[in-house]
Amino acid sequence: MARRKTPEVNAGSMADIAFLLLIFFLVTTTMDVDSGIMRKLPPPPQGPIEDIKLNKRNVFVILINKDNQVAISGQLSDVGDIRERVVEFFTNPTNNPDLSEQIPVLDKKDNELSKDNPDLDKIQIYDNIIEQLGTFVNITKGVVSLQNDRGTAYGKYLEVQNEIVGAINDLRDDLAKQTWGKEFKDLNEEQQDIVTTIYPFAISEAEPRSLAN
């Protein structure tokens, strides 16, 4: 080739230029992956706030006070217990009258159908549940209520949030594995809708107030 015979423009300095650029990007790079816990805030209240009446057994109250102590249903507890307790609360395996009510999916569908303008998407999902999982599926009425003081440390708050979200994720994964042998995130959209209908992110956060104890 010609390269051998005529001396070429020295390409050695090209490396230097590239190095310079490389070092610039190396320095400016922040490799941190942005991760976090996704949540949805409730839309702002419109008009006067109405208290939604919920049966006491369907509300699982977690309190965090300003000294970062956690109370589950009024009893001082450890953060590590939350996950287990939330799972128990949602599934209510022993039909404990103090834990959340379980509504059979057929009742849910009838309930939706009897409304003035039934939500067709919801009915479709209920039908999918019946078709794919059978009629014995129960849907919980339970809601986790998380209340904190203004003096609570954000770190503690997020730790508790994390446990609740973790509990729901565990439930979803269990259901997904049992039914389809896959993890929740690997399911298709229709299957994910089924799972999220059975185990919704039912976390309610109270309007802020000061908790004495």
């Binding site: 992956v33 991760s35 996704m38 805030l41 994390n162």
Partner: peptide, 11 residues
């Protein structure tokens, strides 16, 4: 009306 939030945290 900014309702989708993410509590940034280390994994």
């Amino acid at each position: 009306q900014a309702l989708k939030i993410n509590y940034s945290s280390k994994r």
